[in-house]
Amino acid sequence: MLSKRNLQLDDRGELHHLLAIEGLPKRIIERILDTAESFVGVNEREVKVVPLLRGKSIFNLFFENSTRTRTTFEIAAKRLSADVVSLDVARSSTSKGETILDTVANLTAMHADMFVVRHSESGAPWLIAQHAAPHVHVINAGDGRHEHPTQGLLDVFTIRRHKPDFTRLTVAIVGDILHSRVARSQIHALTTLGVPEIRLVGPRTLVPPELARLGARIYTSLDEALVGVDVITMLRLQNERMNGALIPSASEYFACYGLTPKRLALAKPDAIVLHPGPMNRGVEIDSAVADGRQSVILQQVTYGIAIRMAVMAMLAGAAR
């Protein structure tokens, strides 16, 4: 039975769905991170597979395209020995008029155990979780402007591997915070884990002052925001923002908000640089930084598999 207070937890307080970082207790986040540590070891072996989810059927439902995220969930499921099917729902049933809930009901009738859902509408995974059969688990793989919880978890996992004490960190998140589910999930994860200072940086059109309600400080100057920070997350500037009224041009954006080696030098000498990918080199990040010694961008990709394995294993273990 699911808890009434939080759809994500069952009545024993265990994780049943992963829909958002917001509202997730610290002990659950820490348990996911700790479990992922063990899966990092599995991924470094020659035999990168464990039999934990043998016989489970996992369906990737990507109503919005994302080859990279879908692939990482597929790899994670396969390394747990689950059977995984990826449906390009954007181009199949939905286009014939089937509702999301009917699609899910049909797949549940095929004995699905878990759904990984990406949707352009905020709240779509929530809707599916609300109507899912009791034994079925739902993972949000990014919904609209709302959240991308596994990305937020892999971000804090990567940070923790370099800087284990969250209570001493200053973190800057730079770019289109307003439209970013990645930023939202990361902010909630950092806050829950006790990070005392989060700085949100960007032009007013993309980082409006009301975002301060997330418990962060708002900066319009990147140079000011970077002074003394331990962690910098650069967000991807979506193409559709570049030709709108929100920013003048890509080159103008790079001049004001691009992370260059010179700007990076304003942060602490051991600061690390994160980016959720895919990167726009020369728009939000300089190649010298992206490929530099402070970049942990490819580690994020590696750890993303371990985080997704940990989440899937914990959810499958919660089935009763």
Binding site: E14, R31, D34, T35, E37, S38, V40, G41, V42, L52, L53, A313, M314, A316, G317, A318, A319, R320
Partner: peptide, 14 residues
């Protein structure tokens, strides 16, 4: 797994 769940403190095989 489906009866007992994944235990909380999984250690890393070394």
């Amino acid at each position: 797994l489906s009866r007992a769940g994944l235990k909380a403190n999984v250690r890393t095989t070394q």
